[in-house]
């Protein structure tokens, strides 16, 4: 670009800046209309009135809501103000978490969250349609399927903080269980998939998801899981697990997820 001689600025303010832009020929003129337009500060929300311990809140979702027999779905729950959470028929579970389920018949999952403020319930129904009639699979395939089913029901996701790819302290228990299972099943190969919440940019989230998957892989490798059993990939925010714009949904999407590799 050939520098042009700089004609005078048209704005009264501009001449003192012109030296900053020797290379830029001057054409356009600007005005500062609305320059002082300030965004209004949002009033802070007053804290809730103290009213004794609040009743727990609980959500329970299943995704997808309908599957064919033999397929699996993800059960996701989140509770606040609860000390114990049980889900029938799974039993006692973490206060918030997710699990892959693969029931053979339609199932209604029933969550009970109990805390100092009382008890809150939530239910989610998974409809299972019978698979189309097919020839009986060979025995070896059947045994693989059962191994996959055990894998998907046993291995828990690892959750991450916003914009972070370090395994949190509160995820160490889940990680330990995952390591135990993987040590007991040394033949299983699997993929760790990194996911992110919907905030932020598509490309950066794909890179961040890769970092999360790598963080999980490295933690497993440090515990002695052979690295060549583990592949990693990232879905960023391209395949959200939970589609609402809420903190609980975002948390559920910020995870490392395990997929059985045939």
């Amino acid at each position: 670009m050939t520098p042009h001689k700089t004609p005078s600025f048209y704005s009264a303010n501009a001449s003192k800046f012109s030296r900053l832009f020797l290379a830029g020929a001057v054409a356009s003129l600007l005005i500062f209309a609305a320059a002082c337009h300030k965004k209004e500060t949002q009033a802070s929300v007053p804290p809730p009135m103290p009213h004794g311990p609040a009743a727990p809140t609980a959500t329970l979702k299943v995704n997808p809501a309908g599957i064919q027999q033999g397929q699996s779905a993800s059960l996701v729950w989140q509770a606040t103000g609860a000390e114990t959470v049980t889900i029938d028929p799974l039993g006692t579970v973490a206060v918030s978490g997710s699990q892959t389920v693969s029931p053979s018949a339609s199932t209604t999952y029933h969550l009970v969250a109990t805390g100092a403020g009382g008890t809150t319930e939530a239910t989610a129904r998974l409809t299972v349609t019978p698979a189309a009639v097919t020839a009986a699979p060979p025995a070896s395939v059947a045994s693989n399927q059962s191994e996959e089913a055990i894998f998907t029901q046993s291995v828990q996701d690892i959750y991450f903080d916003y914009d972070k790819a370090e395994v949190r302290d509160d995820q160490q228990a889940a990680l330990k269980l995952d390591i135990q299972f993987l040590q007991q099943h040394p033949a299983i190969r699997f993929i760790v998939e990194g996911y992110c919440d919907e905030r932020g940019s598509t490309e950066y989230n794909l890179a961040l998801g890769a970092s999360r998957a790598t963080a999980v892989k490295e933690a497993l490798a440090r515990a002695g899981i052979t690295a060549n059993r583990i592949q990693t990939t990232s879905y960023g925010k391209e395949k959200p697990f939970c589609a609402e714009s809420t903190e609980e949904c975002w948390q559920l999407n910020r995870r490392g997820h395990f997929t059985y590799q045939k």
């Binding site: 003129l29 600007l30 609305a34």
Partner: peptide, 9 residues
């Protein structure tokens, strides 16, 4: 700021 490209020109 409001940038009036071309204003004055």
């Amino acid at each position: 700021i409001r940038t009036g490209t071309g204003l004055g020109v």
